[in-house]
Computed example of a mutant assay.
Amino acid sequence: MDQLNLRHLYYFWVISREGSIAKASELLDLAPQTLSGQLATFEESVGGQLFSRERRRLVLTELGQLVQSYANDIFALTGELSETLRLAPADRPLRLAAGVSASIHKLIAFQLLQPALKLNRRVNLDCRTGRAEDLLLSLKRKELDVVLTDRMPQTEAVTDRFAVHPLTSSTISLFAAPEMAGRLRDDFPASLNHQPLLANATDAPYFQKLMNWLTISNVRMDLVARVDDSALIKVFGREGLGVFAAPTAIKEEVCRQYQVEEIAPVKAVTDQLYAITRSRKVAHEGVRAICSGFDQPR
């Protein structure tokens, strides 16, 4: 079957719902003989019988059930499309496909996306997480409208393919379970010496800056785990397995949600976030909201 005839598929779908060619022909305003011929042509194209007769009623075969399941999805979507196209352009849902680097904390990612979700129209968000390099490739293929990342793409890629929009920045704070945090606040940062450290395995840029700061401060921490999920690393910290870093901008949410406490902020270390688009002039309303929603450091 090189090409599926959607009209024949639609005729089959109506017959399957009505249970007989006679009822379907009335609904479609076609002669029963014509509809029967169209069904036979469709069965030939799919390579099998779609109905069997039981007590004067058409019953779907196994192949017919399979084809009907796809037809249900197809015509549900076409019906939704028809309803959407009847709306005025300003009332139609806005589709936003956004990529978010896995190294960005989930609470921060939500804050970055929030301006688009607050538009005065419905937004259908398709949000994907992953490596920045993979997301930028999807952006180049026009599978994404924007990529949110915490690392600047290579200069050649920026100038030749993408536009970079600086968003917000935040200092970094260190967190731990309450007992450990209380103990490490005294004589900070020397108190961190030989304490267990939980690292972000996605090599977030701010973590590399943090390690440099520790070296300059003559502090050597013991790396006990590398965790590539920003939520899981906080759970490990809550259970007392070590100290972890997170943006100061979300410290209240981190402490409340994961029942940890801030040890201290590290003002020398910042986390800068960017929105990457295919063009400097952004046409997508949702992407414009994101790019203009965060322009002040935190």
Rank of each mutant, 00 (worst) to 15 (best):
D2T: 11
N5A: 11
L9F: 04
Y11H: 09
W13D: 05
V14H: 01
I15M: 02
R17N: 09
E18R: 04
A24V: 09
A24K: 01
L28M: 06
D29Y: 04
A31L: 06
Q38I: 07
Q38P: 01
Q38M: 11
T41N: 13
V46L: 06
F51H: 03
F51A: 10
L63I: 13
L85E: 07
R86Y: 05
A90C: 12
D91V: 00
L96H: 05
S101Y: 01
A102Q: 08
S103Y: 05
I104K: 05
I104T: 10
K106Y: 07
K106E: 14
L107D: 08
L112G: 04
R122I: 08
R128E: 13
G130C: 13
A132V: 12
E133Q: 14
D134I: 12
L137M: 15
L139E: 06
L144H: 00
V147R: 02
M152H: 12
Q154W: 10
T155D: 13
T159E: 09
A163L: 06
A163E: 05
T168S: 15
I172C: 02
S173Y: 03
F175Q: 04
A176Q: 11
E179F: 01
M180T: 09
M180S: 00
G182M: 06
H194A: 14
P196T: 04
L197Y: 01
A199K: 07
T202S: 09
T202E: 07
D203H: 12
A204E: 04
A204W: 02
F207S: 01
N212G: 05
W213R: 07
L214R: 02
I216D: 12
R220A: 13
M221Y: 04
D222P: 00
D222Q: 12
L223T: 05
L223A: 07
V227D: 04
D228I: 02
I233L: 13
K234Y: 07
V235G: 09
F236Y: 14
L241H: 15
A245I: 04
A246K: 05
T248G: 01
E252R: 08
R256F: 07
R256W: 02
Q257H: 14
E262C: 06
T270K: 06
A275N: 02
K281M: 10
G286Q: 02
V287N: 01
S292Q: 11
G293H: 05
Q296D: 08
P297Y: 00
R298C: 07
